[in-house]
Design a protein around this nucleic acid. Structure first.
Lengths: 127, 127
DNA sequence: TATATTGTAATACAACAATATTACAATAAA
DNA sequence: TTTATTGTAATATTGTTGTATTACAATATA
């Protein structure tokens, strides 16, 4: 299972963010074949969006055979290889980090500040 | 000056992409206070979008005091002052870092991935 | 001064995004 | 069997995004 998170500041439509996170979840192995996803209603509540928005994301992924839905039971990860190219991955990470830097910079923080803080966070997780 | 590029596949509105690139340019130092931006019409031609789209981006940045416009001459990078009390600084940086770690995690990226990318970004700014 | 350039405003239009609401059919569970 | 849960469908509504077009006022330039 993955922790869904919507970023309202990203400018990316919500249903697109949901689609991307599921795709990346499968590609990175955090979501496995046959695994059940949250129900459209529960995820809608969790993310505080309309159920149509979640439904739209699931539906589009079903068309791509990435998800399989069983009416009455739920939505599951399909048996298909989802490959996110290294280039795509890199661009996604870049996009997140650029937004990160832009915001941090607007508060007067530098790249060094950010790296230092993340290193601190990391050393604490290793305890 | 920046090399503006629009990615139609990104799902991010064009005017948002323009805004993001200007903000990022300022954050990295590629755009400096007082520097003139392309005219609304020239950038619209370059990016193959309507002049209203560029105008919307510039207008929004002017509202945020990031740009200054002079009718008849052009649009320029404004002199933005950051005000965050030193007291709140540490907490602010932590909050920003936590939020972006959560976002990165939702796409399967780790703390190490982020640190690596930020280090890459830093090495490029030193060139 | 006359002309071109600049940002801006206003209107109309089409497509998309997100919500709200209601309802239905298939499945699971009591 | 009855009830609840599941995904789905349909409709309406609001706001956003992007284009197209015309026009205007301030500034710069010839």
């Amino acid at each position: 299972m993955i922790d869904f998170k919507l970023d309202p500041k990203a400018g990316v439509p919500f249903y697109r963010q949901i689609i991307d996170q599921i795709k990346y979840g499968i590609a990175t192995g955090n979501l496995k074949v046959g695994e059940q996803l949250p129900t459209v209603r529960s995820l809608a509540v969790e993310l505080k969006v309309n159920l149509n928005t979640v439904s739209k994301a699931y539906k589009e992924l079903e068309i791509q055979n990435i998800l399989e839905t069983q009416l009455g039971s739920g939505t599951f990860i399909g048996n298909i290889e989802v490959k996110v190219s290294p280039k795509e991955k890199k661009e996604k990470l870049q996009g997140i980090c650029r937004e990160f830097l832009t915001i941090a910079s607007s508060y007067g923080f530098s790249l060094n500040d950010m790296i230092a803080e993340l290193n601190t966070m990391q050393s604490k997780t290793n305890q």
